[in-house]
């Protein structure tokens, strides 16, 4: 066991077959971006799960804090009118 430099961690995002957005699938270790993508191919797309891979250095990701869940998301709670189901449209009007 030589010196202790571990390969950095990358977060892997994959776009599936049907044109959806890239989705986070997990992480892996690799020395550089090129190897991260090659490793992601082997670890996360063995069954044709995707057509495009993004590899992002894990330490480049900024995340919201779990302890601030309240102040972040509560303001949306009393705004049910943002959903179409808030409005009752009479049946006579037809599909809308």
């Amino acid at each position: 066991m030589t010196d202790k430099r571990e390969w950095p961690l990358w977060e892997i995002f994959i776009r599936g077959q049907h044109g959806a957005s890239h989705r986070h699938v997990g992480s892996l270790h690799a020395p550089d971006a090129e190897m991260a993508i090659l490793n992601a191919r082997d670890v996360y797309t063995r069954r044709k799960e995707g057509v495009s891979i993004w590899a992002v250095p894990a330490n480049a990701i900024a995340a919201s804090s779990p302890s601030k869940k309240g102040p972040m998301y509560d303001p949306a709670e009393d705004k049910a009118y943002r959903h179409p189901t808030f409005f009752d449209i009479p049946k006579d009007v037809g599909p809308m």
Partner: peptide, 18 residues
Amino acid sequence: WDDGAWVRDGLMAHAEKA
């Protein structure tokens, strides 16, 4: 693990150099 050490280190060194 031991036999692979030079590969792990080598790839890391290459990445840093690049």
